[in-house]
């Protein structure tokens, strides 16, 4: 085999591969011109304005789906709760409509502090680590059927990891991380996870509607409906219904006095 033939072989290899590469390059650039998809500018702008956590709080499959729906003009622009006022303003600007007023940011919080050492347990549970699975077995392994089951189903659904375990095996929401998507509220079987305003200073950390003596037997830190908070802080918005104190946050008076005098100490700072 002489030199010429070998050189020819190298040339063929070069032409073959380079030719294919150039061919594909030209083909693809032509294709991208002919097959270009006209993207709606509004959709892209709105998508950028959204928080991109894809939590689904708006009822759509994700931020991209919601952006498309908003751009089509058929849906309300205020469905994105995680984005809050800023996102709403941005979307209103893009869609050139007036931004509707929205109230203060809401966050979620667990209204229960009855864990190991304070609450009574009726049996030991070692099944699937899921609150809804435990709830099927007689409403949970605590004597109190209203409290936090502590298996962390809310931790699993939280898209931003705002929920974590506390030192007694229950969960607690970090209000600065919470994006108000409400997924934890949907998943919680005992409905012990409830909305509170972001500015809430105190919460009544109990969810039990049992009568005082029943609550007292089941949990050391349960609200017994004694109405002392209501009497000590009349301006604090404490309302006792069904043996449970619930704070009406539209009342802005002093709540400290009532919290300090609470016999089971279940009114805690948030």
């Amino acid at each position: 085999m002489d030199l010429l033939q070998e050189l020819l072989l190298i040339l063929y290899a070069l032409i073959g591969v380079a030719g294919l590469g150039i061919l594909f390059g030209i083909g693809l650039s032509l294709a991208s011109r002919f097959l270009a998809v006209q993207k709606n500018e509004k959709v892209e702008l709105i998508e950028k304005a959204l928080p991109q956590v894809n939590c689904g709080a708006c009822g759509f499959a994700g931020c991209a789906a919601y952006a498309e729906a908003v751009a089509s003009g058929n849906v309300e622009i205020n469905l994105c709760t995680p984005g809050g006022a800023e996102t709403l303003k941005a979307i209103a600007h893009i869609m050139s409509v007036d931004a509707p007023e929205i109230g203060e940011k809401k966050v979620t919080q667990v209204h229960c502090k009855g864990g190991r050492g304070t609450a009574e347990y009726s049996f030991e549970y070692s099944g699937v680590k899921d609150c809804n699975a435990l709830f099927l077995i007689g409403g949970g392994n605590k004597v109190c059927k209203y409290g936090c089951l502590g298996l962390g189903s809310c931790i699993k659904v939280c898209p931003v990891d705002a929920i974590s375990y506390d030192d007694i095996g229950l969960v607690v929401v970090d209000k600065d991380v919470c994006i108000s998507c409400g997924k934890c509220i949907d998943v919680c079987p005992t409905k012990v996870m409830r909305w509170i305003p972001y500015s809430a200073d105190y919460i009544v950390a109990c969810n039990s509607n049992d009568k005082g003596p029943v609550t007292k037997r089941a949990c050391k830190v349960g609200c017994i409906g004694c109405k002392i908070c209501e009497k000590k802080s009349p301006e604090g918005g404490y309302v006792i219904t069904d043996f449970l104190s619930v704070i009406d946050y539209s009342q802005t008076g002093d709540r400290n006095e009532g919290a300090e005098k609470c016999p089971p100490k279940c009114i805690i700072k948030n």
Binding site: L9, A13, G16, V17
Partner: peptide
């Protein structure tokens, strides 16, 4: 045809 089948992987 070009007798460069040894280049099949990269191609």
């Amino acid at each position: 045809p070009l007798n460069i089948t040894y280049l099949q992987t990269i191609t």
